[in-house]
Amino acid sequence: MPHLPTADIACPYCGETITLVVDDSAGDQRYVEDCHVCCRPIEVRVSVDDDGMVAVDAWGQDEA
């Protein structure tokens, strides 16, 4: 079974670097994941381009 890609992001609340495991088989997606350090909700957007490259954006729920 192939390994899922990971992405290191900085929590928009506490600033700690956390590692997200990304399920790229679902294509583009948007979801909420709690910070593993401070437990606050982080909005996550995963984009998969035509070549299969994964990009991850993350921001706090209080950001526009």
Rank of each mutant, 00 (worst) to 15 (best):
C38S: 08
G15H: 07
H36G: 08
V44M: 03
P41C: 04
P41W: 09
G15D: 03
P5H: 03
S47N: 10
H36I: 14
V32W: 12
V46S: 05
H36W: 13
D57M: 09
I42D: 05
R45N: 05
Y13V: 04
V37W: 11
M53H: 07
A58G: 11
G52L: 10
D23T: 09
I9H: 03
E43K: 13
V54F: 02
I18H: 15
G27I: 04
L20P: 02
H36K: 14
V22H: 03
A7C: 13
V44Y: 05
H36Q: 15
A55C: 09
A10V: 01
V48P: 01
D23N: 13
C35T: 04
G27M: 14
T6M: 14
D49K: 01
I9K: 07
R40V: 06
E33L: 09
P41E: 01
S25Y: 01
R40I: 02
Q29M: 02
V22A: 02
V44S: 09
Y31F: 12
I9R: 04
D23G: 07
D51A: 14
P12E: 01
R45G: 14
A10W: 01
R45F: 10
C35I: 10
S25A: 08
P12C: 05
V56R: 00
C14Q: 02
T17I: 10
V22L: 08
D8S: 15
Y31R: 11
D50T: 08
R45W: 08
V32P: 01
I18G: 03
Y13C: 01
C11G: 07
G52Q: 09
M53S: 09
S47P: 00
I42C: 05
A26F: 11
